[in-house]
């Protein structure tokens, strides 16, 4: 299992960051895809922005962007009203069980 998957399994969303050129390496990997330098693993900000969203039955799924770089698809839960593109959301849970899973709520809720 990769470092990324091990951390996700523990509930930590981490990303690789190059020790040499400081770029975030996403999707995560053991070396930088710009300069091939070594990476360190660091937590990703919990805050994200909705880039786009849709619904399947009662599940709202969205493309969320962290730190203006990392984009993932996740589910948006505990919604009380309308959501908008550009809305600030927070990652409330992540896990790994064969595949990654990201769960968001509206920030401040």
């Amino acid at each position: 299992m990769s470092t990324f998957e091990q951390e996700m399994k523990k509930g930590n969303f981490v990303c690789s960051e190059c020790q040499k050129c400081n770029k975030l390496v996403w999707p995560p990997n053991d070396f930088c895809n710009t300069c091939f330098g070594k990476v360190r693993w660091r937590p990703v900000s919990k805050l994200a922005t909705v880039v786009e969203f849709s619904r399947k039955e009662n599940t709202v799924f969205c493309v969320a962007e962290f730190e203006k770089t990392i984009r993932v698809m996740g589910s948006l839960e505990s919604l009380s009203g309308q959501i908008k593109v550009g809305e600030k959301i927070k990652l409330v849970k992540c896990e790994f069980n064969g595949k990654e899973r990201f769960i968001f709520q509206i920030a401040g809720s």
């Binding site: 996403w26 999707p27 995560p28 799924f61 993932v72 698809m73 996740g74 595949k99 990654e100 990201f102």
Partner: peptide, 10 residues
Amino acid sequence: EWDKSRGQFR
């Protein structure tokens, strides 16, 4: 099956 960025929505 590879794309981590899709989360559970593959």
